[in-house]
Design a protein around this nucleic acid. Structure first.
Lengths: 193, 193
DNA sequence: CTCTAACGTTACAGACCGGTAACACCCTAG
DNA sequence: CTAGGGTGTTACCGGTCTGTAACGTTAGAG
C-alpha cells in the first residue's frame, strides 16, 4: 500500500500529465525539459530516468492522448448503448464542445505539423492513432446504417480537423463557428442518401 | 540599370524566397537564421540589414504568401472571366493540385499552430490574411448564385484546411484523398438548394 | 532498524540560437 | 578617378536547449 487515504501521484505520472498540458498549450518545440520538470514539481534527472529522451516523452504523451480519445468512444457507447446514430450525434456534440472550450486544436495534428521531419519517431505513432480514430468513425457511420459511410466519416473528419486549425488562425468567429450546422447537415444529407 | 541581360536577384529577395521555402518545409522554429542565409548565398549581417528580426522576416514571408494567393484568385478570374461557377470549380481543382503536389499544408495555418503565443506579431497578419481569403470565397459563392453562400464557403474552407492537416498526419491515402469528391458534392448539393 | 531503490540537487558539457560590432571589400553613380 | 552605399567576413555576446555525471537525501519493505 502506497498511502492510506490520498493516492500519491508518482513523479512519472506528474511529468506525463504536465508535459501533455504544456505541449498542448505552447507546442512541442515551445516547451523545454526544464520548464516541464519545474511545473511538475520535480527535476530533470528524474525525468530522464523515466523517459529515454524528449522524443520518447513526446511519444508517450501522444499515446496518453490516444487513451483519452478511446475513453471518449467508450463513453459514447455507454451513454447510448446500441444506438449508433445517437452515438454519431454525440460525436458531433463532443467535437463542438472541444472547439468551444479549447483554442489549441488536436495534439496529434499539431505535433505532425511541428515535427516536420518525415522520419521523426513520433510520426508513426501519430499515423497509427489517427488511422484508428478514422476506423472507429467509419464503423460508427456504417453501423448507423449510412450508405456511403467512409465518405461521410472522412468528410466529418476533415471538417473537424479544419475547424480546429481555423480556430487557431482566424479565431472562434471564423468558419469553425458553423461546425455543428455543417456536420448535422451532412449527416441528414447522407441519411437521405 | 542593374544589369544588361540577366536581372540580378537582390539579396533581400533571395533571403525572402529562401526563407519562405525553408519555413514551409521545416517549420518556422525548425529553421535558424544561419541556415537561411547560407541557403540564400548570403550572410547574417545582410539579413539583419533588411529585416529587423526573425519575427519581422516571418511576417514578410507570410505577406509574400498572401500575394501568391491573391495572384491565384486573379488567375481564376482571368481564365474564366465572368463565369463565377467555373471559377469556383477552378478553386476546387487548384486546392486538389496543392494537396497532391505538396505535403506540408498551408503556411498560414502552420505558422498559427507553431506560434502559439497569442500576442505574437505574426498572429494579426495571419488572421487578416485568412479573413481576406474567406471573404473572397464567400463572394465567389454568392456571385455564383448559391443561396447559403457563407455556409458553403466556410464548409469548403474547413474541408481544405482539414485536408491539408490530415495530409501531414495520416498521409495522402487518408481522408484528404476524397477532397474533390466532397467539395464537388457539396457544391452540387448547395446549388440544388 | 537496515537496506535499497527511487528521488532530489548541483554542476556541467556541448550544441545551437538570435542578434550585434568592427572592418574589409566591391561595384556603380557621379 | 572618387565617393559611398550595399555587401561579405569574422568574431563575439548572452541565452537556451537536450542530456549527463556525481553525490546527497528520503522513504518504504523486509
Amino acid at each position: 500500500m502506497t498511502d492510506g487515504v490520498v493516492e500519491r501521484v508518482r513523479p512519472r505520472d506528474r511529468i506525463l500529465e504536465t508535459a501533455r498540458d504544456m505541449f498542448h498549450k505552447h507546442g512541442i518545440r515551445g516547451v523545454g525539459i526544464d520548464a516541464i520538470t519545474e511545473a511538475a514539481g520535480t527535476n530533470k534527472m528524474t525525468l530522464y530516468r523515466h523517459f529515454e529522451s524528449k522524443d520518447d516523452l513526446i511519444i508517450e504523451c501522444l499515446r496518453a492522448t490516444a487513451c483519452s480519445a478511446n475513453a471518449m468512444w467508450e463513453k459514447f457507447e455507454a451513454e447510448n448503448p446500441g444506438d449508433k446514430l445517437a452515438q454519431l450525434h454525440a460525436w458531433v456534440r463532443m467535437a463542438a464542445d472541444c472547439l468551444m472550450s479549447d483554442r489549441r486544436g488536436c495534439d496529434m495534428a499539431n505535433a505532425a505539423i511541428e515535427l516536420s521531419e518525415t522520419d521523426h519517431p513520433a510520426r508513426q505513432v501519430i499515423k497509427e492513432l489517427k488511422e484508428a480514430q478514422r476506423e472507429r468513425l467509419v464503423s460508427l457511420c456504417r453501423d448507423a446504417g449510412i450508405g456511403q459511410a467512409e465518405l461521410l466519416a472522412d468528410t466529418l473528419s476533415l471538417l473537424l480537423e479544419g475547424a480546429r486549425v481555423s480556430l487557431q488562425s482566424v479565431g472562434a468567429e471564423g468558419p469553425s463557428a458553423q461546425f455543428v450546422r455543417m456536420a448535422e447537415g451532412l449527416i441528414t444529407s447522407f441519411r437521405a442518401r
